[in-house]
Each structure stands twice: as C-alpha cells, then as structure tokens.
C-alpha cells in the first residue's frame, strides 16, 4: 500500500455457489465480481456505476466484510462503514434512533457513561442536521430523508475514515436527495472522509464522484476521472448508458452521445458470455470480441478502458 492511498483493492474476485437439488450441492457459480482492482485517495469520492447484476453492490459488501472474497485483497486504513440503500430497512423498526446510535458508540468507545453516550448521540444528530430530540423517536415516525440522516450518523459514530455509500439516495425523492448529497459532501470535507459511492444514476455520479468506474457483469469496463469519462466515453457500454439517461434540459441533451439502442438486457451472471461479456449487446462487436476478453488499457492519462476497439488493432 502506497503511503497516500486509503483503499487498495487488488484483483478482487467473488463467486457465489449456486446450490440446488436434494443434497444442496453446488452446481454452478455466479461470478458476481471477477477480478476488480482500483485505489481510492484520501478525501476522494470513488464512484461505481452499473446496472443490476453488475456486481457493484457486491464490491461494497466485500469491502465492509459482509462477504468474504473468493480471492484478491482489500487493504485500507482506519475504520470502514456503510450507508445502505433502503432507509426503510436500514434502521431497526423497533429501536429508537438513540438506541440505534448508541450501539456503535458502545462498541467503539468502551466505558462511556450514560450521560456521555446521550451527549454523543445528540452531537451526532446535530452533525447530520437533525434535532437532538429525535433520539427518542422510532424510525416509523421519520421521513425517508430523516432516516437516511440517521443512517449516516450511525456510520459516523465509530469515527470511520472510509464510508461505502450503497445507493444512498435512490429510494428518496429528488428534492430530498439533493439535501442528503450536500450533507454527505460537507461531512467529507469536515471529517476528511473518503467514499465509495455505488449508484445506477449517472447524472448523480457526474456531480458527486471524482473518479468513476463503469461496471458490467462483474468487471470494470472503463475507469476515468468523472469529467473525462462523461466528456469522452470510450467503451460502447458507457456510451449506451449515457445515451439512455432521461435528462431534463436541451443543454444536457447535447452532452449525451448520439442515441444508439442496445438490444436485449444484461445476461444472467450465471451465464456470462465468452470473450468480452458485452459483445452480445455491443453495436460495434467484432469477431475477436467473441473469443478474447479485453484487458483494461490506458488510453489517456488516468483513463482506462477494456475494449478491443481501443486495443492494438493489428491483433484482430
């Protein structure tokens, strides 16, 4: 691990066995994450975009230790925490906000008195711009945005350096999303945090992430500083994704790559196509794509793409 990085993920692989039949034997595997490497710098927001089944959420769960990697390594400094997607289920409906926040405090700062605990809970609530009186409330009586603030406070309670944000606003209304994202970014500067932001919303990623990686069927297909990625998308899948975003203004329309439609949907991660996994839907697929899986290649400083269109053409 280099001195500057807060997180290094190296050749991370996670296969889930598929069990079935009378003896519940494994008879196949889902290749959820298939050889993913990236690094995150301090105070950076690293974005992972992709559609369902791309493996982006699995990476988040691997980072915080909810899953054990099949192979590969994850190295990080400090503590790692997570904010989940669904504010409805990320808080225990039968515990008050105060109780929810006390748990990490008790576990990470042993020997706090009741009074100190209560005070820390109040501080945490203030930090996420909630009234300290909310400590006595049950999640049921909070709005979606308020619940997500509590979830953020819970993540902060153990003084982490790194937080995995798994679709933190996708269940919220846009007007609420804006406020939560603003809070998340303010906290980052205030507390010197780094984030892994997992989302399917490219417009959100454009505004929040410093670096964005696009995932397709367990692999990173393109990775670049966000502005570069959106200005010069190199992978056909990234271009398709960008072209598919519904936007709200004519100016944005101009920023999208010219419309191209892909046929069909993401194949099941149980049966990942041979060669480049996108070749079944790719508008520019070539013969080589059906045989050889492309490696991530650097096409610009910091801009990498895994696509034969950008490889040494002579080979094909």
């Amino acid at each position: 691990m280099n001195s500057s990085e807060v997180l290094v993920v190296d050749k991370l692989v996670k296969y889930f066995p598929v069990k079935g039949g009378f003896w519940r034997r494994a008879h196949g595997q889902v290749r959820a994450v298939d050889g993913v490497s990236f690094t995150v710098q301090p105070c950076q927001v690293f974005g992972l975009v992709g559609e369902s089944g791309s493996g982006k959420s699995t990476i988040g769960r691997l980072l915080v230790g909810l899953y054990r990697p099949t192979s590969g390594t994850i190295t990080y400094r400090g503590k790692m925490q997570m904010v989940f997607q669904n504010p409805g289920s990320s808080l225990n409906p039968r515990r008050t906000v105060g109780k929810t926040l006390e748990l990490p405090l008790r576990l990470h700062h042993k020997g706090l008195t009741r009074k100190e605990l209560r005070q820390r809970v109040a501080e945490l609530l203030t930090q996420v711009e909630l009234n300290p009186e909310y400590a006595n409330k049950l999640p049921r009586s909070l709005s979606g945005g308020q619940k997500q603030r509590v979830a953020i406070a819970r993540a902060l309670a153990s003084d982490p350096k790194f937080i995995v944000l798994d679709e933190p606003t996708s269940a919220l209304d846009v007007s609420v999303q804006a406020k939560i994202i603003k809070l998340i970014l303010e906290l980052k500067d205030q507390l010197q945090l780094s984030y892994l932001l997992i989302s399917h919303d490219l417009s959100l990623m454009r505004n929040v992430a410093d670096v964005t990686a696009v995932m397709y069927l367990g692999k990173i297909v393109e990775i670049a500083p966000t502005a570069e990625l959106f200005a010069n998308p190199a992978h056909p899948y990234t271009q398709v994704l960008l072209a598919s975003i519904p936007v709200v203004s004519v100016e944005e329309e101009a920023l999208k790559p010219t419309k191209r439609l892909v046929e069909g949907e993401i194949p099941s991660p149980l049966q990942i196509p041979q060669g480049c996994s996108f070749h079944t839907r790719c508008p520019e697929a070539m013969e080589i794509c059906t045989r050889v899986a492309p490696e991530l290649l650097t096409i610009n400083p910091d801009h990498q793409v895994a696509c034969h269109l950008h490889g040494k053409r002579g080979e094909s």
Binding site: L66, Q81, N86, S89, S90, L103, S158
Partner: peptide
C-alpha cells in the same frame, strides 16, 4: 438479511446482541 442487521454486523455487534436485540 435486513440492512439493519447487516449494519449491526459491520459495527461489530455480538451475535447475542444481533439475535436478541435486533
């Protein structure tokens, strides 16, 4: 598999706590 149970797991809560309190 509820997220609040996973959250408690990430924070390092004991199995007893998760079973009986969460």
């Amino acid at each position: 598999n509820e997220e609040y149970v996973e959250a408690a797991q990430i924070m390092g809560a004991s199995k007893l706590h998760i079973m009986f309190r969460e």
